[in-house]
């Protein structure tokens, strides 16, 4: 049974297909309104999430399907000590496809290994969040029209930020990419990500602590939030929380065609005043995420022979 746990589970051709389907959904939404009629998506969210769960549920409703929802480990059998494997086997009896978020890294793989329906990883701790990356890719394609020769700046928490790691891995599969990694010393991209994705493939990158110095060279600026839940130590979180804040003043140093992205939710790392700037693309990114989740649900259900 095909599941999607991480972005490399999808080939470049499949990514293109998903983006083509998403574009077609955007152009012809009515054609898809009954595509998943009488099919059920189970959203198993054992960690707090609003937008990802709602995005999956909106995606299934717009495909004409239904949703079974579990939110929070306290309200499910997980609170009674049920294993992820047993949960996956049980839910497979009720639903045609599962989207799961879990605080433990690797939980989605365990679910996929035991479910008899496709599993989509909706985030497993700080490990992977592939559908966020799908949203990011569609946003870049829609804003820039291509993936070749882009200079991509990633700013903020590059150590614990799973969306950043996934995006680097996804973008480095395209030609002539150039990365600028902007973070405080304590939150730099881990060396294994740099080695695997960049150094070993000879992909050029720079590391800097200054957003102001880097912003003028960028085609894409991907901002991230410093996430409290990724820190064991509250003091470290408070010290690093306000490291980088994007303001209209800093945006004046940027190119007119810069695309500002953020996986959301933001705390204060992008000033609200930036929202009015046409270069702010983060709410388009949210919408693109729903379309890519629709495309992914369709692809997996078709491959499973359910549609």
């Amino acid at each position: 049974m095909r599941s999607v746990i991480d972005v490399p589970d999808l080939s470049l051709e499949e990514l293109d297909q998903l983006m083509d389907t998403a574009e077609d959904i955007i152009s012809h939404p009515d054609s898809y309104q009954d595509a998943c009629r009488r099919k059920k998506l189970a959203t198993l969210f054992f960690e707090p999430s609003t937008r990802t769960r709602l995005s999956f549920e909106a995606a299934m409703y717009e495909l004409g399907g239904n949703v079974l929802s579990v939110t929070g480990a306290n309200t499910s059998s997980a609170a009674k000590g049920e294993s992820v494997a047993d949960t996956a086997k049980t839910v497979s009896c009720y639903a045609d496809i599962i989207a799961m978020r879990h605080p433990k890294e690797g939980a989605a793989l365990v679910a996929a290994n035991n479910a008899t329906v496709p599993v989509i990883n909706a985030g497993d701790g700080g490990h992977c969040h592939p559908t966020q990356t799908l949203a990011d890719l569609l946003t870049i394609r829609r804003e820039k029209g291509h993936f070749s020769g882009l200079t991509v700046g990633l700013c903020g928490d590059l150590k614990f930020g799973r969306t950043v790691h996934s995006l680097i891995h996804a973008l480095c599969r395209y030609d002539n990419m150039h990365f600028v990694l902007i973070s405080p010393e304590e939150l730099k991209v881990p060396s294994y990500v740099k080695n695997d994705a960049l150094k070993n493939k000879g992909i050029p990158y720079e590391q800097t602590t200054s957003l102001e110095e880097a912003i003028g060279s960028l085609d894409i600026l991907y901002m991230t939030r410093v996430q409290r839940e990724r820190f064991f130590n509250e003091e470290d979180y408070l010290r690093l929380r306000d490291s980088y804040i994007l303001t209209p003043e800093k945006l004046r140093l940027a190119r007119p065609d810069l695309c500002v992205m953020h996986p959301l939710p933001r705390v204060n790392e992008i000033s609200v005043a930036v929202d009015k700037d046409p270069r702010a693309c983060y709410f388009k990114q949210v919408l693109n995420g729903k379309y890519m989740r629709m495309a992914l649900i369709l692809m997996l259900l078709r491959e499973a022979g359910t549609l």
Binding site: S83, K104, G106, A107, V110, D124, G125
Partner: peptide
């Protein structure tokens, strides 16, 4: 050794 890994809580894996 990762305390965030699913194997840290689901010992039978």
């Amino acid at each position: 050794k990762n305390p965030r890994c699913i194997t840290s809580t689901e010992q039978e894996l």
